[in-house]
Design a protein around this nucleic acid. Sequence first.
DNA 1: CAGTATTTTTAGGCAAGGCTAAACTTTAAT
DNA 2: ATTAAAGTTTAGCCTTGCCTAAAAATACTG
Lengths: 218, 218
Amino acid sequence: MHSVSEENYIKAIFHLQDDLALVSTNEIARRMNTKASSVTDMLKKLADKNLAEYIPYKGARLTENGVKCANQIIRKHRLWEVFLVEKLDFSWDEVHEVAEQLEHIQSQKLIDQLDKHLDYPKKDPHGDPIPDSNGNYEVINKTLLSQLKNGDKGALVGVIDTSSNFLNYLDKHSIQLGTQIEVLEREDFDNSFTLQVNSKSLQVSQLIADNLYLKIFK
Amino acid sequence: MHSVSEENYIKAIFHLQDDLALVSTNEIARRMNTKASSVTDMLKKLADKNLAEYIPYKGARLTENGVKCANQIIRKHRLWEVFLVEKLDFSWDEVHEVAEQLEHIQSQKLIDQLDKHLDYPKKDPHGDPIPDSNGNYEVINKTLLSQLKNGDKGALVGVIDTSSNFLNYLDKHSIQLGTQIEVLEREDFDNSFTLQVNSKSLQVSQLIADNLYLKIFK
DNA sequence: CAGTATTTTTAGGCAAGGCTAAACTTTAAT
DNA sequence: ATTAAAGTTTAGCCTTGCCTAAAAATACTG
């Protein structure tokens, strides 16, 4: 199989890549907290293993093989997150770090049985879809809060940032998956929003609006 | 914290050491499937970190610190084994390899919550005691089958070898924890035994008798 | 107790994965 | 079209953990 380091690079490229576009060395380095030179080394290795396509000075993208691999890692990560929240009473801001470790455990039976034990969940605690054992997952219909206009209304179905800082902020305002949110006013000057949430009005910055996914009510 | 490799050495020394006696470099190398020279390197490192006492050419033993550390690793290993058997329907011969990986996950909360989720088990699926979070565990009153005499009788409370090969052998003869075993006859020539198990008579070699722990009926 | 056998350590190397500094491409801007 | 800035790669070095071969220490044996 692949080393932990390889798996982490695969995951990073997967999350950064947007369809056909190449992901740059620097983008990967930023996301992984390493140096560009280390990324170059690894990209060569991933290319050798046919996990990524690498064009020097241009960037890299995962091969079909690499995508398959990424999906399995993400499946494991998200299943463990569900386990931690549902069975071990972790809160949604505590799971990421531990799941980062658990996702690298190698055992097909383990992950199959875990999936079954959790009753084949479709989403993780942050609303992200869990790939099945073939790598397929439900595409979730969602829109970034920052793209909404006055009067738009929806329910929270996902978050992008899964850091404790951000999730604690949401908890503080009793915002969780499913919470209904309405845009009362959008301030074009700084892209901040005035929202109606839990029967209260709440002022949020662009950064926050850029990290919340809603399912819009028509 | 300590690296995976360090943890594995600590565990190996712990299992090999018999109270005060020093464990030799070669013993450790054999158990870890590495070379003696690698062991020497690591013993120096463990000594530097005050996890082991190392006397060149003589051997090593864990310090109090090292023992504490070993107990925590063993606690994690055995709790995960219980989890795999009780919650994910693994059989007792399948758990070891996966638990070897899971025992290195670093998260105090994870292990505390897992313990709670499993309702604070006292023994793992092979009958071995699970240390509590302070490193204390119940001493189990047990005797090696190979030390019994004709007519002795008891119940299986533990196994030493946890390999699939051995555990499958036991499964084949429907021997599990709690199974009653009586020594019908001991053959002094080759230390083999004729046992009464599950209302049948069973011939076992010394190797097998050396891997079964019984609690003797008085 | 001398000599051999065994065990252990040392010395030197290798692979993975990271780093810095220098060299080289590409991009952007005059 | 040059040139400066930004991005990327190369070269060389480091650490961890492992290895082999040789040297050193200890243990055994007659």
